[in-house]
């Protein structure tokens, strides 16, 4: 589907998708949002790019490796569960860093777990979309 309006619009809109996804990701602890829906928004952006430019262009441009995304997501979630055990707390207990960043807020293991969910969902959705559109 190489219509001029769609291709031009996607090139401008895709960074906004990613920015909105980042906003949803960091808002997720206290408000609606979080890793899952942020990953859905980001992968919808990549699916639009794929519809406009073709699968091979998207894979080459963004160097997408869906299995690596899924694996690193699972590894991040496991790491966030194991860090408190290493310190001496319970399994999957939330640990927070004492410093507070200006925009993002406090950092801790729940954010690492959410990052794992994010990477896993992006990998899953993109893998599904790639195999659907390759036929």
């Amino acid at each position: 589907m190489r219509t001029l309006i769609y291709v031009t619009a996607i090139r401008i809109i895709l960074p906004m998708f990613l920015l909105f996804s980042l906003y949803l990701f960091f808002r997720g602890h206290d408000h609606p949002g979080g890793g899952f829906i942020a990953a859905l928004v980001a992968s919808v952006g990549f699916i639009f790019h794929m519809l406009a430019f073709g699968i091979e262009t998207t894979k080459v441009t963004y160097n997408v490796n869906t299995f690596a995304l899924m694996g690193s997501g699972l590894a991040a979630a496991l790491l966030s569960a194991l860090i408190p055990v290493w310190v001496g707390k319970n399994f999957m207990e939330a640990l927070w860093l004492p410093i507070e960043l200006p925009v993002i807020g406090k950092l801790g293991t729940p954010i690492l777990f959410d990052l794992g969910v994010y990477l896993l969902v992006v990998g899953m959705v993109l893998k599904t979309a790639f195999s659907l559109f390759e036929d």
């Binding site: 589907m1 408000h31 519809l51």
Partner: peptide
């Protein structure tokens, strides 16, 4: 006002559904 975000995401998903149905029709 948080519901406006839900409307925004729903518009994205709806547009994606229409686009991919059109792709498969073509």
């Amino acid at each position: 006002l948080l519901l406006m975000d839900a409307a925004l995401i729903l518009s994205l998903i709806g547009f994606l559904g229409t686009m991919s149905f059109a792709y498969f029709l073509i």
